[in-house]
Amino acid sequence: MQVGFQGNTKNTVFDPDPRAKLAMLLAVNIIMISGGSAGVELVLRIICAALPFVLLVSVRHYRTAVIYLAAMGAAVFGESCILPHTSGIAGILVLIPCGILTRFMAGYMMCWYTVRSISVSEFVTAMEKMHVPYFITIPMSVMFRYFPTLGEEYHAVSDAMKMRQIGRTVKDPLTYIEYVLVPIMMSTVRIADELSAASLTKGLSAGGRRTHICEIKLTLADLFIIAGSAVMIVLFFVY
C-alpha cells in the first residue's frame, strides 16, 4: 500500500484546496479532543465525527471509511451506554479505550486523509501562497513525508527482530528501546542524507523564486469550507 503525500487526485470525487483541508483538520482536531457533549458542542462534535467519513468516501477509501465508522460507533456506544453502568476498575477499562477513540480517532483520520490527499508540491505551493517562510515549509513537508516512512522502518526493524527471535523476549525495557531505536535512528540519518541529495538534484538550494507546475486556486466551495471551519471553531470557543 502506498502511503504518504500522494499526487493522485484524479481518483477523487471532490478535491478541495490544501488550505481548505488544513482548515478542516484544525477544526476537527480542536473540537474532537475536548470531550464535552452538551448543546451546541454536541452538534459540532457530530459534524466533526462525520467529516472524516465523508472525506474518506470522497477519495474512495471505502474500507477505511467503514472501519472508521464502526469503531467510532462502538466507542460512542461504549461511552454513552456502557460507561454509566460500570464503576471502579471496569469503568476505567471501558473509559480509557473509548475515551481515546472518541477523542483522537476523528483527528487521526483527518490527518491521514490530509497527508494522503495533498501532494508535496501542492503543499509547498499552498504554504508559499500563505507566505509561510521557506525555513518552516521545507522541514514541515519533510516531516509529514517522513511519518509514514518511520512506520515502514519500524515494521522492518520488528521483522528483523522476529527473524532473530528477540522480539518480545527482551525483558529489560531499556534494552528493548535500544534494539528498536538505534536501527531507526541509523536509517533516519541515512534517509536525511538521501533526501538532501535528492533536493540538490531538484535545485532546492539554488535560491531564487521557484515555479510550480500544480495549480492551486481557492474556489467558492473552498472559501465556504474555510469559513465553515472558522465558524465552528468560534462557536466552539464561545459556548
Partner: peptide, 18 residues
C-alpha cells in the same frame, strides 16, 4: 539555512515526535 539542515530538522523532529 542550507536545505540539508532544514531536512535534518524535519526528519529528526518527526522522529522525536513519534
Amino acid at each position: 539555512f542550507e536545505v540539508k539542515e532544514l531536512i535534518n530538522v524535519g526528519v529528526f523532529t518527526a522522529l522525536y515526535f513519534v
